[in-house]
Nucleic acid binder design. Structure first.
Length: 712
RNA sequence: GCGCCCGUAGCUCAGUUGGAUAGAGCGUCUGCCUUCUAAGCAGAGGGUCGGGAGUUCGACUCUCCCCGGGCGCGCCA
């Protein structure tokens, strides 16, 4: 509701200024530092003062006096040197937030039931009422995309949790989202494990099949892959030869190496799915590289790239025989190219420029001189498919035994299975990939642009994030030996190759145990399914919140103590506020107090009736009740937090919101005893407010993929 | 060498397009459980926002320079 009011205020101010002064400007709004300064403020008069060459305060006074009434805003005052401070109609804010989504503005004067800017559909799990909405924007979110040759580690969890949360946010804001998980089942990483089984472990295909059926196969491969890395470093020539042969077999899908690779990749993918399901993360499509190869996606893309002149065959120079894409991204990059050209010219003229890169270095090789395509080339083909621009499609089959209620599909070269949905053809694509791949993602977008797909290049969103590393203390705790240099650094990067890192399942299990222990202590009688469900909600809540509360470009230096914490700015803190609310509801219900369930609140004529307005207003404006209004204001600001999160592509804004709402509630909880409130009307209102807080906080947590608990 | 990111309280981090007195959590210290669950609340202490110049009515935020740290730049993926 807060966002709705801001938009109304912003529009009204802009229009008023245009009419009164003939000035068109962007009205900036901010949250005042203190509640007594109102709920929204604008420094727009400072900007206006510059244009009109008049004192900002005088302009502010003029505007405050002449501004027409704005829906939901009680008054606008002048403050400081020329701020315009808006004060909300508090009772109306309560009613409007409760009624949010219905499109009705309660208490509207003059215009009965006038529609306010309707909020998008609340995030119902199944499309409850979608017919009245405008067409949803179709987007693809690709996340997780772990190489299927070892167990998932904590860095993969950050990827999946970020991606999954973005999916939830996009669905909540009326997007048609397809979640895809890219499986590089024919790459060197799988090949390496195949080689390790064959050469180092001397395992037959049948033996590997047996191992792959075991539940700890991903852990086994984790260790094996680390050993393989060492094995390859011992003899680079041997490594190159083995890799070449094995990779060729796997890519062509022929021979025992190919079959073993498929067994390994499929088994590991299933284990990854199981791991992610523990955190309520699911997918709709597994897009596999084997199909990109066998359905000749690259060939189609290659033809387009050649035909459009986006890539060219180099006849001479260091890239002779390669197809390269010239690097010429947008105007702001041209400067760099120019600089490089100048340097290049200087070098040619014999001037001292020993290490300057030449123009040639900016070109990106797409096809090697031996005719094989690079990773980026395949990625361009895949990205074209995502936008429906390739002119080819995968075939689809059901993925067997996938966790979760929804059907999971995988690509195949076989004919479509009946019931296969349409994938691809999105308007926007989010690729959740860590920030180290920024350059390659730029090349992919540049490829689309070079093909004349400027809009799709623009809508190719590299949803980047910083890595998860381990603190040296954590590394030591896990028994890893660090070099003296590493031990001094603030963090050490995890590495699947080296087998260095915290495995996802280990971490989840450890958090589950910690949560269970805590719940047992507080509720000795709780057992069975209830205990498991509670511990699970708390563990997942702690972990997801931990990974989401920092902004994307912050490196997480992982430490068990931080992750396991359940105090302060954590998931369990937010969950605890809900538990308290539910405790009040239960007890209130037992005592037969009115409005003790959220289902009653919404349809309750009492609190939302016009005759309740004065009483509610009195409570919200009453001396000593600032914290009540503060709580309500927070409760009504979910839309604002979500819009900011979507706009900045920053899920951390939602964790911040959830924490602040929980904090406002805890503050309120200690000052106001609800069930013993003597004034029946006030008690009813406080109960109503509490239920509203619960609804908003639960919704915020749903967006974060965190479940609320009944007790903890 | 070129490019990108980071530097805010003892520690870990917020600070949305430039806006009012720079915030939170953890840790430290002091209080608060016979009243809706103390995984909580209240209070105290803690800052040259890496340094310097500039733009602006106004800079943690924008520009330039410098210092310190990380990452990327391959006919690997």
């Amino acid at each position: 509701m807060y966002q709705t009011l801001l938009q109304g205020l912003k529009g009204a101010l802009a229009e008023h200024i245009r009419e009164k002064y003939g000035v068109e400007l962007n009205v900036v709004l901010e949250r005042p530092p203190k509640l007594e300064m109102g709920e929204a403020a604008s420094p727009v008069c400072f900007e206006l003062a510059k244009r009109l060459k008049r004192a900002p305060r005088h302009i502010a006074q003029e505007i405050a006096a002449s501004l027409p009434r704005i829906e939901g805003i009680a008054r606008v005052e002048v403050a400081g040197g020329g701020y315009l401070n808006a004060f909300f109609d508090r009772a109306a804010f309560f009613a409007a937030t409760v009624a949010e989504g219905s499109g009705e503005w309660p208490f509207a004067e003059g215009a009965q039931g006038k529609r306010v800017a309707p909020r998008q559909e609340p995030g119902q799990p199944s499309g409850a009422k979608e017919e009245k909405k405008e067409k949803k924007k179709k987007v693809i979110v690709e996340h997780t995309s772990i190489n299927p040759n070892k167990a998932a580690h904590i860095g993969h969890l950050r990827n999946a949790v970020l991606g999954d949360t973005m999916v939830r946010l996009l669905r909540y804001t009326n997007h048609d989202v397809a979640v895809q998980n890219y499986i590089d089942n024919t790459g060197v990483q799988v090949a390496d494990v195949v080689i390790a089984f064959q050469q180092m472990e001397k395992k037959s295909l049948a033996e590997v099949k047996a191992l792959a059926a075991q539940p700890n196969f991903d852990y086994l491969c984790w260790d094996l892959y680390a050993k393989a890395t060492q094995f390859f470093e011992e003899d680079k020539v041997r490594a190159g030869k083995l890799r070449g042969e094995t990779l060729k077999s796997i890519e062509e899908g022929r021979g025992e190496a190919a079959e073993m690779g498929a067994v390994i990749a499929d088994a590991i993918v299933s284990l990854h799915l199981r791991t992610m399901a523990r955190l309520d993360i699911f997918y709709e499509l597994l897009a596999r590289e084997s199909e990109i190869l066998h359905l000749h996606f690259w060939d189609a893309a290659f033809e387009k790239l050649k035909a459009s002149g986006a890539i060219r065959l180099e006849a001479s120079g260091k890239n002779a025989g390669c197809w390269v894409m010239p690097w010429r991204k947008e105007a702001n990059e041209v400067k760099d190219v120019k600089e490089v050209k100048e340097k290049s010219a200087a070098a040619a003229a014999g001037e001292a420029s020993t290490s300057g890169r030449t123009e040639e270095d900016l070109d990106k090789i797409i096809v090697r001189s031996n005719g094989t395509v690079t990773y980026v080339g395949k990625d361009i083909a895949y990205q074209l498919w995502k936008f429906g621009l390739l002119g080819k499609d995968f075939h689809y089959r059901r993925w067997p035994n996938a966790p979760g209620a929804e059907q999971l599909w995988a690509t195949t070269t076989e004919p479509n299975e009946p019931g296969a949905p349409q994938f691809g053809g999105a308007e926007a694509v989010y690729n959740v990939i860590d920030t180290r791949q920024a350059y390659l993602q730029d090349v992919v977008a540049e490829g689309l642009r070079a093909l004349g797909h400027a809009k799709e290049a623009e809508n190719s969103i590299h949803f980047d994030y910083e890595i998860v590393a381990l603190t040296p203390r954590c590394a030591a705790e896990m028994g890893y030996e660090l070099s003296p240099e590493d031990a001094k650094r603030p963090y050490v990067e995890v590495s699947g190759r080296k087998g260095f890192g915290v495995k996802a399942d280990d971490l989840i299990t450890r958090m589950l145990k910690a949560a269970e222990k805590r719940v047992r202590q507080k509720h000795p009688t709780m057992a069975g399914a209830e205990l498991q469900a509670t511990a699970n909600a708390l563990a997942v809540g702690a972990l997801r919140f931990f990974l989401l509360k920092v902004t994307r470009n912050t490196i997480i230096a992982f430490d068990f103590d931080d992750a396991l914490s359940a105090e302060g700015e954590t998931g369990p803190y937010c969950q605890y506020a809900i538990v308290r609310i539910r405790g009040i509801r239960r007890k209130g219900h037992d005592r037969g107090l009115e409005k003790a369930s959220s289902t009653e609140l919404k349809s309750d004529a009492n609190l939302l009736a016009p005759e309740s307005r004065a009483a509610i207003q009195e409570i919200l404006a009453g001396a000593g009740n600032e914290d009540i209004w503060d709580l309500l204001l927070h409760a009504g600001s979910l839309d604002y937090a979500v819009d900011a999160a979507i706009g900045a592509q920053e899920p951390a804004f939602v964790t911040k919101y959830a924490f602040q709402l929980a904090q406002a509630f805890n503050n309120f909880y200690h000052k106001h005893h609800i069930l013993s409130e003597a004034d029946a009307q006030k008690r009813a209102f406080l109960l109503g407010l509490t239920e509203l807080v619960e609804k908003q906080l639960v919704q915020a947590l749903v967006l974060l993929g965190i479940q609320a608990a009944e007790k903890m």
